Simulated assay, not measured.
Amino acid sequence: MRLLNVAGRAVLETPEGRTDVATASAGRFGPDPQSLYGNWAEFSAWAATAQPTGDQPGGPLLSPVPRPPQVFAVGLNYVSHAEETGLAAATGRPLTFTKFPSSIAGPDGDLVLSGDQVDWEVELVAVIGSPAHRVSPDQAWDHIAGLTAGQDFSDRAVQMAGAPPQFSLGKSFLGYGPLGPALVTPDEVPDRDDLLLTCQVNGETVQEGRSSLMIHPVAELVSELSQICPLGPGDVIFTGTPDGVGMGHTPPRYLKRGDTVVTTIQGIGTMTHRCVGGPA
């Protein structure tokens, strides 16, 4: 299943076209995409047999998870990224922080830069579909609704300020957590544990990595987080980024007004964001 948020309405996307969920289900499921995660088992069973209507609901694509109750993020989850930052890889318990839910945005639009040290981080994002508390890694995928692409845009000046530095605020400016273009169920992707992630800035590929290189794979992250925090429907987990971020360049390279960031994950799709404000 591929689930879109088209102008605030839940829409299924198939090769035959798009199907408005509320209309096709005769109101059994509402139009709000966020509401579907609270009834994911019933919804996904219906979606598997729903007859495509072939219609084309119009409007902008928004985040397939517009209002996640909890937003977790994992740092230094790829050895290559840890090495480029000069920090130790998170080989013990995952290095976990949060992006506040107000940072969530859609897969296309303007990114308002908060300063002159805003960085990019392509990330695979897992979305919870059923409550998970103290689950094992073997059980974890049963609690995942699907996967989507994410960007963990980061204001490094804010992130690294203070002693010790505090990650969450520098990663939570408005629009710094875009998701999309679709929520894709694991059976729809080529290999749920080995997907290609790329990020381009102005057409130049700056990041290219595979999710199979995570130190803590998706199932392990869900299990580890669930040992402490009960995970609920619609929660999202940013799973970390491979090497190639701006702060890893010599000298560091950050986003500036007029730049275009293109984020792509194999089997999920592409997001495009244009930088406005900030330095020229």
Score class of each variant (00 low, 15 high):
L3N: 07
N5L: 10
A7F: 12
R9P: 04
P15F: 12
V21L: 10
T23P: 02
F29L: 15
P31W: 14
D32A: 13
D32E: 14
Y37K: 09
G38F: 15
N39W: 10
A41S: 08
F43T: 09
W46H: 07
W46R: 07
W46I: 06
W46C: 03
Q51H: 10
G54T: 01
G58P: 01
P60L: 10
S63P: 00
S63A: 11
V65L: 04
A73F: 02
N77H: 12
Y78M: 00
A82W: 13
T85G: 01
G86E: 07
A89T: 00
A90S: 12
T96Q: 12
K99R: 15
S103G: 04
D110K: 14
L111H: 07
L111W: 12
S114Q: 05
Q117W: 10
V118I: 06
A126Q: 04
A145N: 01
A145R: 02
G146W: 11
A149H: 02
G150H: 03
D152R: 00
S154I: 03
A157E: 11
Q159E: 14
P164I: 14
Q166E: 12
K171H: 03
L174W: 13
G175A: 07
Y176G: 00
L179T: 01
L179Y: 10
G180T: 01
A182E: 01
L183W: 03
L183F: 03
P190L: 11
R192W: 14
D193R: 13
D194W: 13
L195P: 00
N202K: 07
N202H: 08
N202E: 05
E208N: 06
G209M: 07
R210D: 00
S211C: 10
H216N: 07
A219N: 05
E220L: 08
V222M: 06
L225R: 02
L231G: 03
P233K: 04
G240D: 06
T241I: 02
D243K: 15
G244T: 03
G248D: 08
H249Q: 15
T250F: 10
P251Q: 14
L255F: 12
R257H: 15
R257L: 08
T260D: 02
V261C: 09
T264F: 11
G267A: 06
I268V: 05
I268Q: 01
G269V: 01
G269S: 01
V276K: 10
V276I: 13
G277S: 03
A280N: 05
